[in-house]
Amino acid sequence: MKHRQQLRRVVTASPYRAGAVSAAVLAVGLTTGILLTQGNGSTPPANASTIAVAEKMGGQAGAEVAPSLVTPSPATPSPSASTSAPVPAAPSSAPPTAAKAVATPTKAVKKAPPASKVLDYDYEAQINGWYCGPAATRIALTARDRQPSQDDVAAALGTTFNGTNSADDVTRGLNSLAKTNFYTSTFIQGSPSPAQMDQLQADVVHAVSSGYAVVANIAGSATDTDGGWHSYDGGHYLTVVGYRDSGRTVQIADPAFVNGVSSYWMTTIDLANWMATRGYSA
C-alpha cells in the first residue's frame, strides 16, 4: 500500500531521518500504550498497530513527523439527534374570565297589614246641625296632620244649610285639602251584598293601615258593640279611625257628640247596613 511505501522510505533514509522517525514512533507508542522496538538499523516490525500509527501520522511523501500527541476532538452532538424537552406554553396575558353572576330578580313581598290599628286624630264635634259632613271630614284630615277649620272644610265640600250632598263631595274635599289622590268613592245602592261587606272591610283595613281615615255617609239606626243606640234618620256623616280583628270591627269617631259620646266600636257588617243607599270615601 501507499502508506507502507512511505514508511519504508522514511525508515531506510538517512540516519538522521531514521532517528527522528524512531522518536516519533516511540512517542506515539507511549501515547497509545504500544511499544515499538527498533533493531540496529533494521526495519521495525510491520504489525497492524504500527501500520495504523504510521497511517495516522503520515502526510505527504518524505514529510517530517513531529513527536506530538493527537487529541481527538470531542464529538459535537447533532441538533437533530438531541431530544428536545417539551416547552411549556407561555401564560396568557389576558386575565381569567370571571364567571358572570346571574342576577335573579326578587319579587317584592307585600307586607300584610296589622290585625288591628287605630289612627291618631284630633276630635272636634260639629259646630252646628248641618256641619256633620265638614266635621267628619276634618277629623279624617287631622290623621294626616291637617288642621283646617270646619268652615274651610265646608267651603271645600260645598256644604249648605241642607248639609253635604254626597260621598263624592267628601272625596273631592279630602283629596284637595290633604294634597293627595288616595281617596275614591264607593256607593251601596241598596242593601249591601256579602261582596260589598267584604269590600268595605278590605277598604277600611287598606286605608287605616296606610294612615288614612274613612268618612262614611249613613242614614237610619244602628247599634254599637257595647249596645249603644245611634239613630240619624235624616242622614249623617261620621269617621272610621281604626279597626280590629282584621277589619271585622271598626272604631267610629262621631262628630254629633250625642249624650257626650264621641267614639264607639261597631261591626263592619252593621256599618255596611247603616250605609245602605249611601256611600263612603276611602
Rank of each mutant, 00 (worst) to 15 (best):
Q6S: 10
M197W: 07
V153Y: 03
F182E: 06
A90W: 02
T184S: 15
A52W: 04
L271C: 08
N162T: 14
G211R: 00
Q189H: 14
T12D: 13
T137V: 02
A140C: 14
A140T: 12
Q201L: 03
A154D: 07
F187A: 11
F187L: 12
G173A: 11
N40M: 09
S92W: 07
S73V: 15
S246C: 07
T249E: 11
V240P: 07
D168R: 00
V21Y: 03
D224P: 08
D145P: 05
V214Y: 00
D270A: 12
S166E: 06
N128L: 01
A27L: 09
A101H: 10
Y232R: 02
A20R: 02
T50V: 14
S93E: 13
P134A: 04
T137A: 03
N162G: 11
V241T: 15
S68I: 15
F182A: 04
T186V: 08
W130M: 01
A99Y: 13
V102W: 00
D233S: 10
I252P: 02
A18I: 11
S68N: 13
T71K: 10
P15E: 04
I188L: 12
L271D: 00
G41K: 11
Y232D: 00
G129F: 00
P44N: 13
A256W: 08
L200Q: 09
N175R: 01
V214Q: 07
D152E: 15
V215Y: 10
L271W: 01
A90V: 09
Y264C: 13
I252N: 01
K56V: 00
S176P: 07
S185I: 00
Y183E: 03
T71V: 13
T50C: 00
S84K: 13
A195F: 10
E124F: 05
G190K: 06
Y264S: 12
N128Y: 01
L36K: 06
W274N: 01
G235R: 08
S149E: 09
L177P: 03
L238D: 06
V11S: 02
V261D: 05
R248A: 11
D198F: 03
Y123A: 10
G234F: 11
T104A: 10
G220T: 12
T97M: 13
A115H: 12
M275A: 06
D233M: 02
D151W: 03
